[in-house]
Computed example of a mutant assay.
Amino acid sequence: MLDALAPADVASAKVSVFGPSDSLTIDNIIVISGENAREAAALFEPLTRVKIAGDDFVAAAAVKMSMASVTKTLPVLFLEAMGAAANSSQLELTISLFEELYPGMLQFLRRTLPTYVHHARRRLDEMREIETWVDAMGGDAAITRSGRLVLERLRLEEIPAEESKNLVALIRAALTRTALPRDSNDAEQNIRHEIHAQA
Rank of each mutant, 00 (worst) to 15 (best):
A169D: 15
N36I: 00
A42K: 13
S96W: 07
E80V: 05
E100F: 09
A136K: 03
K165Y: 02
T178V: 13
T132F: 00
A11Q: 13
L5C: 09
E100H: 12
A37P: 12
L113D: 01
L74P: 08
T71N: 13
Q198I: 08
S184K: 06
L97H: 14
E35I: 00
M105N: 03
V63S: 07
S69P: 01
L175N: 14
S16W: 05
K51F: 06
G104C: 02
G34P: 04
S164V: 09
M67K: 08
T176M: 09
Q198K: 12
L149V: 05
R121W: 02
R38P: 00
D55P: 03
V70N: 11
M82E: 11
T144G: 08
G147A: 12
I29M: 11
S16P: 06
A41G: 15
L149P: 01
D186W: 11
M127R: 04
P103Y: 10
T115E: 14
V117R: 11
T176Y: 04
E92M: 03
A86W: 12
H119Q: 11
N190P: 01
E194N: 10
H119A: 12
V58C: 07
T112Y: 02
I95K: 00
N185L: 14
V17Y: 07
L2A: 10
I52N: 00
D9C: 08
V31K: 04
L149W: 14
R153S: 15
E131Y: 05
S164N: 03
S89N: 15
E152V: 06
L154W: 15
M82F: 11
P20V: 10
I26P: 00
T94C: 11
